[in-house]
């Protein structure tokens, strides 16, 4: 049963990832990504990481995906939204991706790491302790980063800073 559910979720993940990779429509790609992200959150639950799973949904679905959808909607005019995500150079990309995948599988097979049987554990409290004890410095740095981010994003999108450049006129043939 568990394996079955796992396989379903894994299949959904792979399906979402493949949609992201191969869809010609940017909005479908984004939806594929959304599917993959939610499914990965499900995988996290298999790995006893419910807090991370919830974080994943909160941040990716509630934040990043909304932002990406905003971005798509703001930058895609009219009808071409379904076909403005062209795929080019598929052959070399496939080649490189295949090489990378084979390499990864090779590494997984030859890693020689020892693994233990994992078990479900309540994690929230312990993650809090880790964050505020061992990883307090990166934690604070992330907060600084986010402040910088807020300010930076705000400054970047201020109207008066944006210089609207005239679209280059197509030159008529010289007579």
């Amino acid at each position: 049963m568990k394996d079955g559910i796992f396989l379903c979720i894994a299949a959904v993940t792979v399906f979402g990832a493949l949609v992201t990779a191969f869809s010609r429509s940017i909005i479908n790609a984004a939806l594929g990504l959304l599917l993959a992200l939610v499914a990965i959150a499900g995988l996290y639950i298999f790995l006893s990481a419910d807090f991370v799973a919830v974080s994943q949904i909160l941040i990716y679905v509630g934040g990043v995906m909304v932002l990406l959808l905003f971005g798509i909607m703001l930058t895609s005019g009219g009808d071409n939204i379904f076909s403005n995500n062209p795929i080019m150079g598929a052959v070399p990309a496939t080649l490189i991706t295949t090489i990378f995948g084979l390499l990864g599988i090779y590494v997984v097979n030859t890693s020689g790491l020892t693994f233990y049987q994992g078990a479900y554990r309540a994690t929230t409290r312990d993650i809090g302790h880790f964050l505020l004890r061992e990883y307090i410095l990166p934690f604070e740095l992330v907060s600084v980063l986010i402040v910088v981010l807020i300010v930076g994003a705000g400054v970047m999108l201020r109207k008066e800073l944006v210089i609207v450049r005239q679209a280059p006129q197509k030159k008529e043939g010289k007579k």
């Binding site: 070399p92 490189i96 090489i99 990378f100 390499l103 090779y106 590494v107």
Partner: peptide, 17 residues
């Protein structure tokens, strides 16, 4: 991006294999 991925692969090959 091709350069990045390609060089990443090359580095990995050099180190691991």
């Amino acid at each position: 991006l091709y350069y990045i991925v390609g060089s990443f692969i090359m580095i990995y090959v050099f180190i691991r294999i």
